[in-house]
Design a protein around this nucleic acid. Sequence first.
DNA 1: GTGCACTATTGGCGCTGTGCCAACAACTAC
DNA 2: GTAGTTGTTGGCACAGCGCCAATAGTGCAC
Lengths: 207, 207
Amino acid sequence: MSTEPRWRRLEPDQRREEIFASAQRLFALRPYGEVSTTDIANEAGVARGLLNHYFGTKRDLYLEVVREAASVPENVIDHAPGGSLEERIDAAVNWFLDSLSGQDAAWINAAGSSGLGRDPELERILLKAEDDAVDRVLETIDMADVSDHREELRAFIRAYGQLAKTAGREWLIKKKLSREQVHHLLRQCLLTIVEDVLPETVAGDRG
Amino acid sequence: MSTEPRWRRLEPDQRREEIFASAQRLFALRPYGEVSTTDIANEAGVARGLLNHYFGTKRDLYLEVVREAASVPENVIDHAPGGSLEERIDAAVNWFLDSLSGQDAAWINAAGSSGLGRDPELERILLKAEDDAVDRVLETIDMADVSDHREELRAFIRAYGQLAKTAGREWLIKKKLSREQVHHLLRQCLLTIVEDVLPETVAGDRG
DNA sequence: GTGCACTATTGGCGCTGTGCCAACAACTAC
DNA sequence: GTAGTTGTTGGCACAGCGCCAATAGTGCAC
């Protein structure tokens, strides 16, 4: 009888991926403190020590999971650059809502709840994701190259992004709003920002 | 020589308050995982076991701190109910920004960063605070008693609340926006919601 | 003033979870 | 078959937390 091996030896990348996937599943299910490294190791069918070998620390593994979850889905929009501002915004909002409902609701849960106590590293990751999201929005509405008051515009859009994320939750999770209602909210608010708030900022600066 | 006591015996309420204050300080400074019960006990000048005696679990203590930090400051606005909608909104935004800058930036940090893994109890606390905030906004703009599409309006305002909080951070913490800019953003967006988005929802429902 | 009952407070035991590392065993090349 | 490589294991050591019996401030009765 061939003594079959008690465990298989995998390529590092492959094993790493397996562990990562297990961590993703569990961290999506329960908060950080209620997921033990033993849980993850069991889920991956692996000794606990291997987590540290591949990812360093439990926290490091967690941050890597968050980084991926927080990143905005690829901008695969057709990106028809033509049309009026209203039309472009309408298209952007449509794309956003599509990618929300399409994806398995990973992004929408990110940065959900916590409270107090700044965690610089975690914050850095989420701010990076937030900034990428801003780029996506600006690209999509063809305003990526405004140089006047660029920083203010970006800050406005960051705030808008939180509105959008919350509204998305009201639609998909809490079911208090319909897609049409969210669509209208996002369209009108973005329009207001670009057509009213931003010009006022520019004028106020020059006046 | 009178053998002075090694520790003083306090009224339970008083001791509890001391421990709570120490916990507040530390949890505001570092994230949950980097604050040990030993730290809190040292800060309060007390044995570690006393935390469990008064608050049960480290997590219970944490939740209590979060509950207080997340609660919106009292609505001490003069609340002049008169004036046009624009004026009322303007006053509401002013009050909001005042209370943001006045307070020692506890509220604005709440629900800042985290990611993934729903924590039902923590979520409940933050949602409760969010809902209270919605009440404040509606009161202040004299729309607390609308019964038509009440739930939708509240959902819109919840989303708006996240916009407001993020914008507040852009002003007070990140310094990317001036008070005037945030003021304008908040005023115009709230106006848009009340005068445009909400009516459209009503019309869409009846059409 | 002295002793006593009351209870706020302490200190340490036991358990769980994490990081670390030396030994081990699956796989490869010769 | 054998030796070298290295992915993988298992357990040791330590830190943090909940718990509880023992301790010692404190006010009251007399």
